[in-house]
């Protein structure tokens, strides 16, 4: 592929109410296979996707958190969690399945502004 353009993927939905979370993850994996620079940003209810100990088998769904644990194996290291969204939901970094960079409003704004493409699912 010719030139590399960066993609910011914004995960803003809770993991099981819609297929948005899974579809965002699928794009992340595809971008990783093509070695496309990628920022994976969790904001709003999207932070719930990263919470450890999910058991959605009871509601006939596959665990989203378990899939997100594998991001590092795919070389997806630019994972950002919006600090305010986490705090507003009574969560801390210790609740999450993987290590992530906590990001503040200003830095997030800059990250998005510097991306070639933004995909918001």
């Amino acid at each position: 592929m010719p030139n590399k353009k960066s993609i910011s993927l914004i995960a803003r939905r809770a993991p099981y109410g819609s297929d948005g979370a899974r579809r965002t993850l699928d794009i992340a994996f595809a971008a990783a296979v093509f070695e496309q620079p990628l920022n994976y940003i969790f904001i709003g209810d999207g932070v719930f996707q990263l919470v450890a100990g999910q058991n959605p088998i009871e509601i006939s769904s596959k665990p989203q958190g378990a899939a997100l644990e594998t991001l590092e194996l795919y070389g997806i290291n630019e994972v950002f969690v919006h600090r305010g969204s986490l705090l507003n939901r009574g969560l801390t970094e210790s609740h999450l399945v993987c290590s992530a960079n906590l990001i503040e409003d200003c830095a997030l704004k800059k990250l998005i502004a510097e991306s070639t493409y933004v995909i918001n699912l």
Binding site: M1, K5, I27, F29, A30, V33, F34, Q36, T116
Partner: peptide, 15 residues
């Protein structure tokens, strides 16, 4: 597949 989305993005100016 999604690879075709990623490929298209690398050839585009806007999405």
């Amino acid at each position: 597949g999604l690879g075709q989305l990623i490929e298209a993005l690398s050839n585009s100016d806007r999405m």
